[in-house]
């Protein structure tokens, strides 16, 4: 996220950190999660799941901010995030809305 000025508490406040989990065999490869993850944590994998779909894979686990967007948008109940201990560091690069749970940014 780009600010027009640095927030006063920029030094202390970090983005939340999340661990994203993919239930690959349940996925039908729609790519909604990949498209709308505000942190580009995911990419479509070239591998096949049991049903012959390409599930997403995690390409940047560290970047996940536990916004829950992937979980909300997935029509298959195949992906979700849980809060992980620690902070993701600074907010640089978080696109608008990423720190709001459930994807304000995309909607």
């Amino acid at each position: 996220m780009r600010y027009w000025r640095d927030p006063l508490d920029a030094g202390q406040v970090g983005a939340p950190r999340g661990d994203v989990h993919i239930l690959a065999d349940r996925c039908k490869g729609c790519a909604f999660c990949v498209e709308y993850c505000p942190r580009q944590v995911l990419e479509m994998s070239r591998e096949f799941n049991r049903k012959g779909y390409h599930p997403p894979e995690i390409v940047d686990a560290e970047a996940c901010v536990n916004c829950g967007l992937c979980e909300m948008i997935c029509p298959e109940f195949a992906i979700f995030s849980v809060e992980s201990a620690g902070l993701a560091g600074d907010l640089a690069g978080v696109s608008v809305g990423a720190n709001i749970r459930a994807g304000e940014g995309a909607s």
């Binding site: 994203v20 989990h21 993919i22 239930l23 690959a24 065999d25 994998s45 591998e47 096949f48 799941n49 049991r50 599930p55 997403p56 894979e57 995690i58 979980e71 109940f77 195949a78 979700f80 849980v82």
Partner: peptide, 23 residues
């Protein structure tokens, strides 16, 4: 053939948060 993606093994133990509301 099933090829698990990187995160699959760990995730298999955790169920989706909406599972209690779904059949």
């Amino acid at each position: 053939m099933t090829v698990a993606t990187k995160s699959t093994t760990a995730s298999q133990e955790l169920e989706h948060p909406s599972a209690p509301l779904l059949r």
